[in-house]
Simulated scan of single mutants.
Amino acid sequence: PEKRAWLYENYHPLFIMRHRMSKQADAILGMYLHNDLFTEEEIRRNYDFYQEVTLHHSSLSTCIFGIVACDIGYLDEAYKYFSQSARMDLDDYHNNFYAGIHAANMAGTWQAIVNGFAGVRCQNGVLKFKPTIPKEWKEYAFRLKFKGALLEVRITKDKAEFTLLEGGEISFTVRGKEVVLKSGETYTYQLN
């Protein structure tokens, strides 16, 4: 177990190929990018399988696992992966910080918040939200531009608030409920 993190560096490829392991789970990435093509049960089964065999030797692996963990309701695991992603360079998880920062992982950490915890997706031209909040947080907020509209999103333990800051009108869904906002309006969705 203590050498599992360094299998690719310590063992011959033929040894590695005889074992069930993956550097990063591209199947999980595909399910994140195209989650509308899979049932939640299909995503959960694949996540559970790859959870056991993935080594996370890619700096982009933990943020993607965290996003998909949110999608299937594994919020504790999602937060664990988010934390690993956010602290990758600070804690030098891959022992290569000397070579420079993992900039793509930093973007992946942002995606873990927006696409993971807030559940933001754009599918078939429709902006969708499935907001959650880690039990460790009191709130989080972000802004995003969609079709020329600037939307501010603030999520607390009790509610998700959506405020249209710029743009004439925006439509989106929150957990399947359609919302239309005009400039300056706020929509509140109760989480509990």
Rank of each mutant, 00 (worst) to 15 (best):
Y93L: 15
S83A: 13
I67A: 06
C63T: 07
Q84A: 10
Q84D: 11
D91Y: 13
D92M: 06
F82Y: 15
A86I: 12
F82R: 00
I101A: 12
S85G: 11
E77N: 09
L75K: 10
Y93E: 05
I67E: 08
N96C: 14
I67Q: 02
Y74I: 01
G66Q: 03
N95F: 14
L75P: 00
N96Y: 02
L75W: 13
F65L: 07
I72P: 06
I67C: 04
G66L: 09
Y81I: 05
F82P: 05
C70E: 01
F97P: 00
S83L: 15
G73I: 08
F65K: 01
N105V: 05
S85Y: 01
A78W: 04
A103F: 08
Y74W: 05
V68H: 03
D71A: 14
I67V: 15
F65I: 11
A104Y: 12
F97Y: 14
G100E: 01
Q84V: 00
I101K: 07
C70W: 09
D91V: 09
G73A: 14
I67D: 06
L90P: 00
G66Y: 05
V68R: 04
A99W: 06
D91K: 15
H94T: 00
M88T: 06
Y81T: 00
L90Q: 14
H94G: 01
D71M: 10
D92S: 05
F82V: 08
N96Q: 08
C70Q: 02
I64G: 01
F82H: 12
D76S: 08
V68L: 09
Y74S: 04
N96P: 00
Q84Y: 13
D89R: 02
V68Q: 00
N105A: 15
V68I: 06
C70M: 10
H102S: 09
F97V: 10
R87I: 00
G100Q: 02
D76M: 06
A103H: 02
Y74L: 12
S85P: 08
A86M: 12
N105T: 04
G73M: 11
C63N: 11
A103T: 04
Y93H: 14
S83T: 15
Y98Q: 12
G73C: 12
Y74G: 01
E77V: 08
A103C: 04
D89P: 01
K80E: 10
C63H: 13
V68E: 05
K80Y: 11
H94I: 05
N96I: 07
Q84F: 13
D89L: 10
A86K: 14
E77A: 10
C63Y: 12
Y79W: 14
I101P: 02
Y81G: 00
I72F: 07
Y74C: 07
F82S: 04
A99Q: 03
L90E: 15
C63F: 12
C70H: 02
S85C: 11
C70Y: 03
D92A: 04
N96T: 02
D71R: 10
D76H: 03
A99D: 05
I64S: 05
D91C: 10
C70S: 08
N96A: 07
M88D: 01
D89Q: 03
K80N: 06
C63E: 10
A103N: 01
I64Q: 09
Y93G: 01
L90A: 14
I101H: 04
R87K: 14
Y98P: 00
F82D: 06
R87N: 14
S83C: 10
M88R: 15
A78V: 01
A86C: 02
S85I: 04
E77Y: 07
Y74E: 01
Y81N: 02
N105D: 08
F97T: 02
Y98R: 09
L75V: 07
